[in-house]
């Protein structure tokens, strides 16, 4: 168990430390990089729990896609770092309050779970992972079997949100604007269409 303990405290320390650095870093790009470190080590904690599928998804989705876009946006911004830092002490009490509420809720949740006895709704069976099945199979059976309706509703909500975002940002081409790119036309273009060979006499110009 010693190695697991070392690994746990290693990951947990880095997660907490880098989460603190996300807030404390002076440069927003550094903040995003610390955030990525926190995500990555949280994935390490998931692996220790035996939830390797969730760990991989965390890295693929958050580190691989979401954080890249964060970094992309933050790098492009022209930010006055001093002005950004000015509000820190003013907003600190509010931030601490929110953190305290989150901590209390977390403790309450864990306490209630440990107390046991409460059942919400009617479960169709034991959700516990059957021995010998892998993470992915267990998750798949739950998501596509027991929770199929909820899963599909979540999917449709995301689809609607995506279409909504596209509709909101879509700008139809203005009439009279520059001609749009026609890829097929570009590919069809051959050297004969674009160039003409001329061999003018010495001292003569070229009529085009």
């Amino acid at each position: 168990m010693l190695i697991q303990a070392i690994a746990f405290y290693f990951f947990a320390t880095i997660v907490v430390a880098s989460a603190v650095m996300v807030v404390m870093a002076r440069n927003p790009v550094h903040s995003v990089l610390w955030l990525i470190l926190a995500f990555f080590n949280a994935a390490g904690l998931m692996v220790l729990l035996g939830a390797e599928f969730i760990a991989m998804l965390l890295v693929i989705v958050y580190v691989g896609a979401v954080a890249v876009l964060f970094l992309f946006v933050v790098m492009m911004l022209d930010i006055d770092f001093a002005a950004m830092r000015a509000g820190f002490s003013r907003n600190a009490p509010l931030g601490l309050l929110i953190a305290a509420i989150l901590l209390a809720e977390l403790l309450l949740g864990v306490g209630a779970y440990n107390a046991g006895g409460l059942t919400l709704g009617k479960a169709a069976g034991d959700a516990a992972q059957a021995a010998g099945t892998s993470n992915i199979e267990a998750l798949g059976e739950l998501l596509y079997g027991r929770y199929i309706v909820l899963f599909e509703i979540a999917g449709i909500i995301l689809l609607v949100a995506m279409i909504g975002a596209i509709v909101l940002t879509f700008q139809p081409p203005k009439p009279g604007a520059r001609a749009r790119q026609d890829v097929a036309k570009q590919i069809r273009r051959r050297p004969e269409d674009a160039t003409v060979m001329k061999s003018p006499e010495v001292g003569q110009g070229v009529e085009l």
Binding site: E52, M56, G64, A65, V68, M75, S134
Partner: peptide, 25 residues
């Protein structure tokens, strides 16, 4: 020899972009 080998490859290769982005910035 992990069960999620292919996902691990995807996860690690998606980390690769950071080297380039960080060096560029």
């Amino acid at each position: 020899d992990i069960n999620v080998g292919l996902l691990y490859i995807l996860a690690i290769s998606s980390m690769g972009v950071y080297g380039v982005v960080m060096s560029g910035w």
